[in-house]
Amino acid sequence: MRILFIGNSRIGDFILSSGLLAHLIETYRDARITVVCGKIIVPLLAHTPNIERVIVLEKRKHHRHWLDLWLMTVGTRWDLVIDLRNSAVSRLLRAGQVRRVERVRGKRLHRVEEIGRVLRLDPPPDPRLWPGDTDRAAAADLIPDGPPVLALGPGSTHEHKRWPSDRFAELAVRLTGPGGILPGGRVAVIGSPAERAQAEPVLAAVDPARRIDLMSNTPLLTAAACLQRCALYIGNDGGQMHLSAAAGIPTLGLFGPTPAHHYRPWGERSDYVQAPEPFEGLEARIPEAMKAGVSLMTGITVDAVEAAARRLYLKVAPTESPRIGEPASAVLGSGMDIDGKPGTM
């Protein structure tokens, strides 16, 4: 059986669709699967079973990347094509079945639910990650055994989606201080080097003996394994938030000008805090905010995030704060290697 899976190019969107990919792998165990995705996604597939080929879709002028994809796939007779991009390519291939994302009017569906409807799966499959033994070993070096770890993601590609760094810093002090949900806990600040400026105030607020600086080019699956060693993650809406939720740890996402009902972290161990202003109003202000380089997340208070974090942690966490040494329970898989250079946060 030959399956073509046309996926997303952004980390968060691809992670939200990974449960559907896992469903295909487990349902059609002898299938040969070709995955189409962005270059940054390739490392997430490094240990995914049954992947015969990964096609990197690099954006070109005049949408010529879709022509490139058609030329690379038109010579194959596909049994099933899953097109999460609703592209013209899937309409022009020889295929037994073609399944695309359907927009449902009048329903506020989560993206995972939309994707599940592609194969009429209800409930939809949870996002899935496939870290390898080398990723887990690297994570154990980066986050050694010891007191529980609060993971924070203060960065974001766009300023308007960033909760202020000084509030992340205050939150870290509250949650790991006396009376906090993780008293005496360590604080891991996770992100890319490009987000270093947002991380510095948070790192500076934590005792050097308790802080873990992961603001580096950490491979994606190693970052997932690191998150799996943490007790709680709190961060802005983005790919790292979805990586944390897929790793199975309690995850709290912070939302402003994006719809939380559609992109909140998925799963029973996740929750979110939405800015008090309706996101539609904030969304309309995005062009202005991008031009001015300002955040649209200032309506969220530290008190609100602390309260939400406490509710979530007490709902899903052990009665005693765990010490690091055993990975958190998660929806994780294992599989064989494919070629691909490590991707990074």
Rank of each mutant, 00 (worst) to 15 (best):
A22N: 11
H23Y: 07
L24Y: 08
L24S: 04
L24T: 01
L24E: 03
I25W: 07
I25G: 01
I25A: 03
I25E: 00
E26C: 12
E26A: 05
T27Y: 01
T27I: 06
T27S: 06
Y28A: 13
Y28P: 11
R29S: 06
R29Q: 06
R29D: 12
R29E: 08
R29Y: 06
A31E: 10
R32T: 11
I33E: 09
I33W: 04
T34D: 04
T34I: 05
T34G: 03
V35W: 00
V35R: 03
V36I: 07
C37S: 04
G38Q: 05
G38Y: 01
G38E: 03
K39I: 12
I40S: 15
I40V: 15
I41W: 02
I41C: 07
I41Q: 01
V42S: 13
V42H: 12
V42L: 11
P43G: 11
P43S: 15
P43F: 11
P43T: 14
P43A: 13
L44D: 14
L44H: 11
A46D: 14
A46Y: 14
A46Q: 15
H47E: 15
T48D: 13
T48N: 14
T48P: 12
P49L: 05
P49N: 09
P49W: 10
N50W: 12
I51E: 07
I51G: 10
I51K: 05
E52Q: 11
R53C: 10
R53Q: 13
V54W: 12
V54L: 00
V54K: 12
I55P: 00
I55G: 04
I55M: 01
V56G: 02
L57H: 02
L57E: 03
K59Y: 07
K59A: 06
K59E: 10
K59D: 10
R60Y: 00
R60D: 03
K61G: 10
H62I: 09
H62K: 08
H63Q: 11
H63W: 13
H63T: 13
H63S: 13
H63R: 11
H63I: 10
R64F: 07
H65E: 08
H65D: 05
H65M: 00
H65G: 02
W66Y: 09
W66T: 01
W70M: 10
L71R: 14
M72R: 13
T73D: 08
V74T: 11
G75V: 00
G75R: 10
G75A: 09
G75Y: 08
T76S: 04
T76Y: 01
T76I: 04
R77C: 03
